[in-house]
Design a protein around this nucleic acid. Sequence first.
DNA 1: GGTAAAGTGAGTACGGCGTACTCAGTTTTT
DNA 2: AAAAACTGAGTACGCCGTACTCACTTTACC
Lengths: 249, 249
Amino acid sequence: MTGHDNLWMRPERPARGPRPSFSRAALAEAAIRIADAEGLEAISMRRLAADLGAGTMSLYRYVTGKDEVFDLMIDTAVGEYLPEDRRPPDDWAEGLRLLAWQARRTMLRHPWLAPLAAGRPQAGPNSARLTESALGMLDGIGLSVDEMLTLVGAVFAYVHGYIQSELAEAEAMRRLGLTLAQRLARHLSYIQSLIATGNYPMLERMTKEAGREYTAADDRFAYGLDRLLDGIAAGLPPRGETEGPVSPR
Amino acid sequence: MTGHDNLWMRPERPARGPRPSFSRAALAEAAIRIADAEGLEAISMRRLAADLGAGTMSLYRYVTGKDEVFDLMIDTAVGEYLPEDRRPPDDWAEGLRLLAWQARRTMLRHPWLAPLAAGRPQAGPNSARLTESALGMLDGIGLSVDEMLTLVGAVFAYVHGYIQSELAEAEAMRRLGLTLAQRLARHLSYIQSLIATGNYPMLERMTKEAGREYTAADDRFAYGLDRLLDGIAAGLPPRGETEGPVSPR
DNA sequence: GGTAAAGTGAGTACGGCGTACTCAGTTTTT
DNA sequence: AAAAACTGAGTACGCCGTACTCACTTTACC
C-alpha cells in the first residue's frame, strides 16, 4: 500500500523504471473511441488492451480496474464542457445556460457519458474545473456556498435527466427497427388495446393529437432549462438584499 | 414467430399446456427482492431461477431474455408511484409535485430503479397509467397534448436526474468507507492539492464554508422541483386565454 | 379419450468477461 | 552495479447470458 488509493493522486510516471509505453490520456482516448463507435458494452479490458497494442494485464499498471477506466473516460469527456478560450458571461443565468448547452452537446457526442456519469460521483481534474467555473458564476450575488451548490445541483440534475431520456429514446429507435413508424407500431398496438378499455382518455387523445406540432428535442430541452432558470431567478434575493423570497437553502 | 414480439402483448397464460408454475408478477417480485437487497448486479438468470426454485432455462418461457426481466421490474416498481386510493389534487402543480415526491420515495426504496429506468423507454401497463395520470392533471388548462408532454417530460427529467445524483452520492459513501469523513478525506487531499495551485478560489471557499448550514437531501430536491414548477407556472397562459408568455412548445 | 401443445428440471456447451498470478526479459534511475 | 518498475505472454478461476437437447408431465381441444 503506497498510500495513493486515489487515481488522481497517483503519479502517472513511476519514480524509477522504464517509461510507460502510453499515457493515461491515451488510454482514456482509446476507450472513448471504442465507446463512441460501438457503445459502452464494447469496452473490455481485453479489447482496450488490443486497441492500444498492449497486453491485457499491462493495463493494470495504469489503472486498478475497469472502474478507473471509466473514471478516466468521464473526466476526459467532461473536459469538453469547458472551452478554454471563452470567458463565461457576466450574468449567472446566461453562464449556467451556456454550460448546460455545452454539456448537452458533449453528452450527445458521447452517448455513453450521461448514463455512466450519472452513477458515480466525479472527482477528477476536469470535474474540479467545472465545479470551480459553475460556482464562480454565482459568486457575488449574495448566496452562501451551500446555496450555490444546491442551485447548481438542481440545474445539472435537470440536464442529466433530460439528456438521458433523450438518449434512451434515440437508442431504442436505433436498436429495434430503423424507422420511427416500426417502433411506434410495436408499442402502439399495445397502447391501443389499453385504450379499448375506455380507461385511458388521455392516452387516446395522445394517439390522435400528439405530433401535430413537432417539437424538436432542442426546444424541449430549452423549455425545461429556461423554466428552471426563470424559477430560480424569481426566488433569488433582489440586488443588495441578503434574503430573497425563495433562496436555495 | 407468433407475432407478439412485445412483452406486454404476449398472453401470460398459454392457450394450451400446463399452468406455468409461477407468474410474471412473481418473477418480477423475486427480481426486485434480489435487487433491493444486493443490488442490480446480483441479478443473474441463474440466481433468479434459483430463488424461484426453477431451472435456469425455464425462465426463458416467461421472458425472452434478461432485458425483459428488467422491463418487468421497472413496470412493477413504477406502479408504486401511483397509490390507487387517492385522487390527484385539482391543481396541476400540486398533482405533479405529489407525483414527483412519490417517484422519489419509490426510487429511494428501490435504488436500482432510477439508473435502470433512465436507460430505456417505458411501455408497460403501469407506465401507461402513470402517463395517463400525469396528462390528466394538465387537462383543461389550455395546453395541447404536445405541450403537456413537454411539460411533464421536463419535470420527470429533473426528478430522475436529481435522484440519480443523490443515489450515486449515497452509493459511493456506502461502498468505499463507511464514514463520511473517510470518503471526504480521500478526495479532499486531492482537492487540497489543486487548491494549492491558487487557481481554484471557489473550491477553496467550498472546503472552508460548505456544510455550515446543512441542507437535507429532501430540501435540495424540493428546491429544484419547486423552482421548476414555479417557472413553468409563470410561463403558462393565464386563465381563459390560449396563448401564454412562454408556453411549452 | 386421444393428441398436440406447452409447460418442466437437468444437463451441456460456447464465447465472453474481470482480474489474479507467474515469468523471463528490458529499460531507467539511483 | 543494483534496484525498481515497466513489458507481453500465458494460465487460471469463477462468473455471466443464452442456445440446444432430452425425457417427462400437464392441460385444452376435437
